[in-house]
Design a binder for these strands. Structure first.
Lengths: 195, 195
DNA sequence: ATATGACTAAATAACGATTTCGGTCATTGG
DNA sequence: CCAATGACCGAAATCGTTATTTAGTCATAT
């Protein structure tokens, strides 16, 4: 029951103080539980942080699934999904400010360990919509790779520019990618052969 | 006359020892000049490193210009340019191994300061070829953004996987982007309106 | 002029003393 | 009973200080 409470408490503290100056005792106090209680739900402090991050990522995935199921042309849905993938993540991690990178750096190995699984999961959300358009199986992964450079994980918040600029750039890219997907349906052979 | 020699010497040392354990005295010894001589051509150690990096980047730009000028269909040229942009950079920075990131981190501010200019320069190389295909002015920048996630600057060498995998992924993305560009020519309006 | 390397100030490492913090576990109160 | 706790432990971070290294300068030499 308290696992979610602990995660929520850690999230609040992360946004306020950043990773370095958030101790396990702090989390316990903020969540109104004893320190030991945290270790009934999590194996380590790192796992608590990971849980915070994953909650955000899962929330974005939910949004993507919702868009994927909307009754609109697949092209529109796919474009919006790509934009949402980037913008929702941006908005979710914006509050952590520059301390985000300190945090990501601190748990980098664990993050990398699960990144592949998460990409696979995300590809599974995009897959069916890609299917509706032109079909090549691996293209969902390609779409993700193309938009990855806009994620906070890769660029610092300031490098991403303001929300408005990011929105413009990623929208433009999304349109281009969807257009390419549409075209590839007409000309499958060109895309199939990869040296 | 010796500026190039110094840059070359620094490059050799960087690949061998990494950034941290390469002193200005080391560079002077390797280049067979006195330490003071280095400061006749460069304002600081940082500028020497920057010069090493820029030499590589310029070399890649030369390759791109060459491809842009080849007597082939614009679509083929553009696709190869995108692949080359990523793969040539990969091969050039591969030798530095993991010490690359330590180096990039050390001179990050200077790097960021010139990044915008370099992107503009690169966009100017891609621009004409994009024009030949479908034309939208800003799309060159979009193409660069889409392939940025594959550059060593953003991912660690190991995250990029082996050369073969990187090649496959970026080729696939390049084909998709070029296809999209071709399609956008037929349907300009869709791409023009960005919220 | 041009190049140099001894010199200096500043950064970085080394080190031990001290504090902080993640994780455990014997105790407790519901 | 046993889920929850917080005092406790050792490892790791931090600090204050000294020793060493190194980036950058400049008087001198070629």
């Amino acid at each position: 029951m308290s696992a979610a409470d602990i995660t929520a408490a850690a999230d609040r503290l992360l946004a306020r103080y950043g990773y370095r100056r958030m101790t396990v005792d702090d989390i316990a106090r903020e969540a109104n539980v004893g320190k030991g209680t945290i270790y009934l739900s999590f194996r380590s402090k790192e796992e608590v942080i990971l849980s915070v991050i994953n909650r955000h990522i899962e929330a974005t995935f939910d949004l993507l699934r919702k868009i994927a199921a909307e009754p609109r042309p697949a092209a529109e849905r796919l474009e919006d999904m790509l934009v949402t993938r980037v913008l929702d993540r941006f908005e979710r991690f914006q509050p952590y400010g520059e301390s985000l990178h300190e945090m990501l750096a601190a748990i980098r190995p664990a993050l990398l360990a699960q990144r592949e699984g998460q990409l696979r999961q995300e590809a599974r959300i995009f897959g069916p919509v890609v299917d509706e358009l032109g079909g090549e199986r691996g293209l969902a992964r390609t779409l993700l790779a193309a938009t990855n450079a806009f994620l906070p994980y890769y660029r610092s918040t300031e490098e991403l520019g303001g929300r408005a600029r990011l929105h413009r750039e990623v929208r433009s890219l999304a349109k281009l990618l969807v257009a390419g997907l549409g075209a590839s349906r007409l000309d499958q052979r060109t895309l199939a052969e990869a040296p």
